[in-house]
Write a protein that binds this DNA or RNA. Sequence first.
RNA 1: GGGAGAGUGGUGGAAUUGGUAUACACGACGGACUUAAAAUCCGUUGCCGUAAGGCUUGAGGGUUCGAGUCCCUCCUCUCCCACCA
Length: 805
Amino acid sequence: MNKYDPVKTEAKWTKIWHQTNLNKTPEEVKDKFYNLVMFPYPSGNLHIGHWYNFAPADTLGRFSKMHGKDVLEPFGYDSFGLPAENAAIERGLMADKWTDQNIADMTKQMNKIGAMYDWDKTLKTSDPNYYKWTQWMFLKLFQDKKAYQKDGLVNWCPNDKTVLANEQVVNGECDRCGSAVERKNLKQWYFKTTAFADALIDDLDSIDWSDKIKEMQRNWIGRSVGAHINFAIDGSNEKLQVYTTRPDTIYGVTFMVVAPEHPLVSEITSEDQSKEVNNYIAEVGAKTNIDRMETKEKTGVFTGAYAVNPATNQNVPIWISEYVLMEYGTGAIMSVPAHDERDYEFAKKFGLEINQVIEGGTIEDQAHVSSGKLINSGEFDGMDSDEAKQKITTWLESKNIGQKQTNYRLRDWLISRQRYWGTPIPIIHCDNCGVVAVPEKDLPVVLPLDQKFGKDGRSPLLDNEDFLNVKCPDCGDDAKRETDTMDTFVDSSWYFLRYPNPHYQDGPFDPVAVKRWLPVDRYIGGAEHAVLHLMYARFFTKFLHSKGHLDFNEPFTKLINQGMIDGPDGKKMSKSKGNVINPDDYVDKYGADSVRMYLMFMGPYEDGGPWDPKRFEGTHRFVNKIWEMITSSYSEISVDSAVEAELESKLHKLIKKVTEDVPNVRFNTAIASMMEFVNYASSVKLKGEVSANQWNIVVNTFTKVLAPFAPFLSEELWEKLGNHESVHAQAWPIYDENLVKDDVLTIIIQINGKLRDEFLVNSEDAFYQDELERMAKEKLGDKLAGIEVIKTIVVPGKLVNFVVR
RNA sequence: GGGAGAGUGGUGGAAUUGGUAUACACGACGGACUUAAAAUCCGUUGCCGUAAGGCUUGAGGGUUCGAGUCCCUCCUCUCCCACCA
């Protein structure tokens, strides 16, 4: 018996596919399928998580290709980022050399996966030919005032020594290194993501993403509709503007709270309260984000000032407290303790007045938060909250002290980083002209390579005179370059536009190629990017669309989020736990196809799960079983036409099942049905019950079904079966509806819904209800004697149910 | 505290519109081959019961001829957000 030799086979076909240009992307495109996986960071080692990402995605691509689709399946690298810089600092390497070596290593490993990548369509974001256009994107945003500089409180990671975007702070910690994030006042570059806040929410309805991810984006953007209201301050000309979603409760406002950082605080604070107020501000200012989050109990200080409730004309005290955030709304709130839990807690703690204005609840015990009928609200008494919100807002507008206002939790994207290994921000600072954009013709602003780092990790750009010193493009005087680089998420926000023609020189992307291939039909990647990359890429697409560069406004039509592969112990893989699975160990021993098959068979793609070496063995056994079944010789022993019909029917059922499962990423059930088929076909073969001719047709067809899953194995089998053209260039087999239908159906017999018996019936008779009932009665025979049948339910082709007393 | 999702054998997991629950695989047990082991192959395997039979999809209730699937209450777990006014 000749045994399947994956190592030899895979090397052989890798070479042949390369020589025959099998994976070249078609130029003539009729029915496109842009099959994209989120590109990886070149960390240097392809781990099993990468395999889980790319191998099933490739099955989808190959499956589509066999269906006659023109498939674009590119691969590249998100190659700017901190790990390269850390390697440079810690080990004295060059960040660029380290990165390029990793790319070379990973590309070698990537070739083992058996994917249909067209290596002509590759890119890396650290390539000047690429980041030139990232800088171009910055300039376009800058020209449109959607890239701007702002002074303010920012998140600072003391370990990575850079600022972070809001999205990159998780539970008060840096999402890269886990350090506690500090708050600093710094001038930084931002992209105006909030300009597209509405579109980012509304257009979610038009794309095929999981509800989970869509909901996460909606929550992150956090749209809320309410009103701005200006409160007069007693004894001052200043107005205190607040944002509220509950204008219906304005008669219940008994105090105001402003954020400690609010600019009005210093102006309105009375002399006798100023010491206490200043102490409080200092105390809060010293806290980190984590400290702030840990503060459970409400704290605050009275400013000594009063505002006037415009509804009641009552004077209400103005307090400061850290529970009001300067970053959201106006940094000031009107407090309605009767109908807001936080205000209630605050009022109870500091003995402030509580006025109920919505009927119901037990205000003595807790805030009554739900909406309802208004009371104690003058002319608005008796109105429902929803109506009162409208009416009161209109009333405020008529008095010119308020208006309807929509607010978002989304903050503009902070994109500058005080790091070296990233795309330089194409800006020049000139003493005469201020902030000046680098002219387009001067792009790219080249990042100097071979830079040495000190132990402190200080960006070498800060000390690189050649880089720093430039002439101002406006006035020609000496000027300095911006030394911050861009967040690497900027690089990855538009890469999918460049893949169709990564060699294009006249712009960031080739408009003809983009028209041909975009938007992305399947986008596959981890759910951890729900509010990061996936939102940033949508923002870029919307911006480019608004400027007429793109004719679509959503980049990823259908999104698939694969799960995570854990270690055999069920825990997240990590070097320190010693539970990391190295795919090479398995690939070198069992072959890529077995790894691919196991990853797809282990469970639903969206769930992931632990890597189980035992179960892997099981899948590998299946691969060998296929090899044995197809390559060992077939001999007719006792040909049986009933078995021939059965085998043909099972083959067509298999085709149908796999055809339906793969587009829905149900790889596990597709493979299960292949196993079932092989089990049956093997037993037929052993007994030689079908003609050699039919057997030949069956194994040829089966090999085509197998092809997207196990590209090497199927190609070798295909050749052994005497075919000359690649199996991957074959058309997907079409199943015959008539053969999928069963000739004989099993009808079950129930009594009161419980299974009691069953019988077989020819499919053409299975839809005559009277006949089915008669047959069921006959089959049950004596069992029904003396029992009163009240009702009989007949489901044609399925069952007969006798309802008895 | 808010939002989303999920609970099925010893394990990963299958189950068209409500219509044979536990497909496929792992593990376990028994057997064949072997001096022996590995590999391979064959059988058994939801639970209780010798059997007939009964029970079974987190718990309880409901709708229905019939519920893993639909509705209500509760419990548990996972993920996301979190003083967002």
